[in-house]
């Protein structure tokens, strides 16, 4: 059900990375990527990504069509990961949830934005109306990256997150209404106006 394909993107630094869907053969490289994340980055992640079971779960979710998972690759190594989740049932099948992780050495180079842009594009192709992302208040870089691509703060849940040191932090819910792009299409197909014949 998920669209396939890969693309090569040039970052502001001049470096090129390949963005492509996750495949089973990536398991080892993806595990290495998560294990290599510094503790201060893992501090704000919902799951213990260093567990091999986490990668297995990502692959299973992809296989089950629950998530579109994208990796950023350079010279055979994974340097970024992004996922788009879409509920198959229930009252929010029009809402996608995105997650992003970028290797420390690749942060502040536009890779997060490139991954996010690709996820937004996928969301649009899947007719999703809204995207949400959860960011811990202290992740200022991530907040900026999301806001640059049209995400806005929609809610703040106080003390909602207990990080790996045990400290409680606020969780920011960001949302991006992607349905507006269809307003132009609606205008195009509204051929009942007298002036349109």
């Amino acid at each position: 059900m998920w669209p396939e394909g890969s693309s090569r993107v040039s970052l502001a630094s001049g470096q090129e990375v390949v963005l492509r869907p996750l495949v089973e053969a990536d398991a080892e490289a993806l595990h290495r990527f998560f294990v290599a994340l510094p503790e201060e980055d893992r501090l704000f992640l919902e799951d213990d990504v260093t567990q091999r079971a986490f990668v297995e779960r990502l692959l299973a979710e992809k296989q089950a069509g629950q998530a579109f998972t994208l990796v950023a690759e350079q010279r055979g190594e994974i340097v970024g990961y992004g996922a788009l989740y879409r509920p198959k049932y229930g009252w929010s099948t029009h809402v996608g949830r995105v997650r992003l992780v970028v290797a420390r050495a690749w942060q502040r180079r536009g890779l997060g934005s490139a991954l996010l842009r690709e996820l937004v594009r996928k969301a649009q192709s899947l007719a999703l109306d809204k995207l949400v992302a959860e960011v811990v208040e202290d992740q200022e870089g991530a907040l900026r990256a999301f806001q640059r691509l049209g995400f806005q703060k929609e809610a703040v849940l106080s003390d909602h997150v207990r990080d790996i040191t045990g400290k409680k932090r606020d969780l920011v819910i960001l949302a991006n209404d992607t349905s507006h792009i269809w307003e132009h299409m609606e205008a195009l197909v509204a051929d009942f106006e007298p002036s349109a014949g």
Binding site: R121, Q124, W182, M185
Partner: peptide
């Protein structure tokens, strides 16, 4: 002919 951002779904 279709608006930007809607291309992929329209192609589908």
């Amino acid at each position: 002919s279709v608006p930007r951002g809607t291309e992929e779904l329209n192609l589908k």
